[in-house]
Amino acid sequence: MVDGDPRLARLAVNQMTVRSWGVRDLVQGCLRAGVPAVGLWRDPVAEAGLAAAARWVRDAGLRVSSYCRGGFLTGADRAGALADNRRAIDEAAELGAACLVMVVGGLGADDRDLPGARARVSDALAELAPYAAERGVRLGLEPLHPMFCADRAVLSTLGQALDIADALPGTGVGVVVDAYHVWWDPQVDQQIRRAGDRIASFQTCDWTLPLPADVLLGRGMPGDGHVDLRALRRGVDAAGYTGDIEVEIFNADIWAADPDEVVATIVRRHVQHVL
């Protein structure tokens, strides 16, 4: 059970930030650092075994801030995508995750029909949402920066994600406010206010330059770049979000560093640049 610095009460470390750690290592590392929540990914959970992963987190007294990931709903194999997402929902329920993060998918190799792809996302979510609700799992639509529109997410803004979520009943489909993906948006403050109780997750990292050749790995440690993380945190808090603040970083240099040192830096930067 984590019982320490109250400033860390909402802090979570996403598993991808310390990629070399399996689930058990992540749980133990967060316990050492006084971090009360972890964001888990499907592949490491499968490697550990779902039941074992759930038990390790539960026995440690930690929370699962998010489970990554569902989505990829835009491809030709609709039935396969829906089946895989139902499995992900079942896993999230077993873990007690606060939400299942949905990266909705991009365009096919010869596909240029963005409206059509977004319509397929809406249709699939209309089918998945009741299944998730029955299992007590919240779906979090994550808009990604426009540079990922073609291959990963045809939702690029909070406004687009909210348009889809708002068309579904209840608040079981929410949105993920990921600082890396939304900080640039001139309407981000307005859309965070609009989101209100649809905010399912708040993730932090920083936008650093120059971007690497693989732009997916361009995320920086909070405080190293250009994002006003404190302003975003104040915005989601003002909108009514009281959940975990999860640090999710894809960065080869950070992955190569000592994971305990990475978590220690996260703790310091969270206090300095987010709170």
Rank of each mutant, 00 (worst) to 15 (best):
D214I: 04
V182N: 03
R58F: 09
I266C: 13
A238T: 11
R112N: 07
C68F: 06
R112C: 03
V227C: 10
D43Q: 15
R112T: 10
A256Q: 13
A238R: 14
P143I: 11
A119S: 14
D3V: 14
V175G: 11
L209Q: 13
A167I: 02
V101W: 01
S20K: 13
A76I: 13
L82R: 00
I164A: 07
R42Y: 06
A195H: 05
D189W: 15
G61T: 07
E134T: 11
M16Y: 10
R55D: 14
E127C: 02
G106I: 07
D166G: 12
S156D: 14
L31N: 05
A153Y: 05
L162W: 10
L275Y: 11
R219M: 02
H270A: 05
D178W: 03
R112S: 08
V271Q: 08
D3S: 14
A92R: 06
L26M: 10
V154P: 06
Y180T: 04
P186A: 12
A88Y: 03
P130C: 12
E246P: 01
L125G: 05
D84R: 13
R120P: 02
W56I: 01
D178A: 08
C68R: 00
D5E: 11
V182E: 05
D197S: 13
D43H: 13
E94H: 15
P36W: 03
G106W: 06
R42S: 14
D260K: 01
A33Y: 06
V137S: 02
D258A: 15
W184G: 00
A54Q: 07
D214V: 10
G96D: 08
G106F: 06
R198G: 06
D214M: 05
A153I: 07
R269I: 00
T204L: 11
M102R: 03
V121E: 11
Q15T: 01
D151S: 14
D206F: 09
W183K: 01
V35K: 00
H273E: 12
E91A: 14
L211R: 15
G22H: 04
R112H: 09
D43T: 14
W21H: 11
Y180G: 05
I164Y: 08
Q15R: 05
Q203Y: 10
L8K: 03
R42N: 12
I199H: 12
A51N: 06
C30Y: 07
Y241R: 02
E248T: 03
V263R: 03
A256T: 05
D258M: 07
V137P: 00
L168E: 10
S65N: 08
